[in-house]
Design a protein around this nucleic acid. Structure first.
Length: 270
DNA sequence: ATTCTATGTCGAA
DNA sequence: TCGACCTAGAATA
């Protein structure tokens, strides 16, 4: 399930798998049929992620495929070709292996100016080396909106989603409803640096693990077992289990349209 | 069989 | 702020 790390991991996987090869391209479901047919037999050049957006480019073709997985989209690479189609497959890429895209929010062919427009509406992405965290800082520092809302705003910061926002706020002890302008610069610098590392780890492992070693299962005398979202976390969706560190009941509240989780005891500073 | 939920975003009211 | 939308698996009846 997709936050920015999923898309960067996917971009890497698609590049390693398909770049430099002629690909089969189809839309079993039909909703990307015309575009998929135009791509059939072309050489895939690269796959790149910006925030939660994926761009796939082909040799000798200015347009790029723009994919956004939305809440439940997936793009899964499996061995072999001519595999049976299971369920709704919007776009299938084949070349020795098969990559099936299902349930995307967006799958479209964009001209270069249209691609630029997508890039332009995104804030800095902690997973990209060309990102400037100052751009996010200025937005945050000038805003009265809660930091928990700003971290989810893709114009402010591209790539973090509901799990990373809850967990990064926990890791820095920040009360989620603190106004952006009350966040000290030093705190923001630490949050950005931490997000970079956490999300890089997410790209590497394909899951979101945010728990520091000193709070890990062995250190806390718990049985090591991953939660159903695929990693271990401090507060995300733990309202019935309590804070991983102090066991205080985790609070839940909708902020920026999504369920925010936090520990009122561990998270009290700005 | 049905309803619900999910790591997301957009546009209309 | 709300509903719509993309899909699949889990939860509920």
């Amino acid at each position: 399930m997709p936050e920015g790390h999923t898309l960067h991991r996917l971009a890497g996987e698609l590049s390693r798998t398909f770049a430099g090869r002629a690909v089969g391209s189809s839309s079993p479901q039909g909703r990307f049929a015309t575009e998929a047919a135009r791509l059939e037999g072309r050489v895939l050049e690269s796959a790149e992620a910006v925030g939660k957006h994926l761009f796939v480019s082909f040799a000798d073709m200015p347009e790029q495929v723009h994919v956004h997985l939305g809440l439940y989209g997936s793009f899964v690479v499996s061995p072999g070709t001519s595999r049976p189609v299971v369920g709704q497959v919007r776009w299938r890429l084949e070349s020795e292996v098969t990559a099936d895209l299902r349930g995307p929010n967006t799958c479209e062919l964009l001209t270069p100016p249209e691609v630029d427009l997508v890039h332009a509406r995104l804030g800095p992405d902690p997973l990209r080396d060309d990102s400037d965290p100052d751009r996010a800082w200025h937005r945050i520092h000038g805003s009265s909106a809660p930091i928990a809302a700003l971290l989810m705003d893709q114009k402010v910061l591209a790539g973090a989603g509901n799990v990373y926002r809850a967990e990064i706020l926990f890791r820095h002890g920040v009360a989620p409803m603190t106004a952006g302008r009350r966040i000290p610069r030093t705190r923001w610098d630490a949050i950005w640096a931490d997000l970079r590392e956490l999300m890089r780890e997410g790209v590497r492992t394909g899951r979101i693990d945010t728990v520091r070693p000193e709070h890990g299962p062995e250190a806390m005398g718990r049985a090591p077992r991953a939660d159903d979202h695929g990693g271990e976390v401090y507060v995300y969706r733990r309202e019935h289990q309590g804070c991983l560190v102090c066991d205080t009941p985790v609070r839940r509240r909708e902020v920026a349209g999504r369920n925010l989780f936090w520990c009122p005891s561990c998270q009290q500073r700005g």
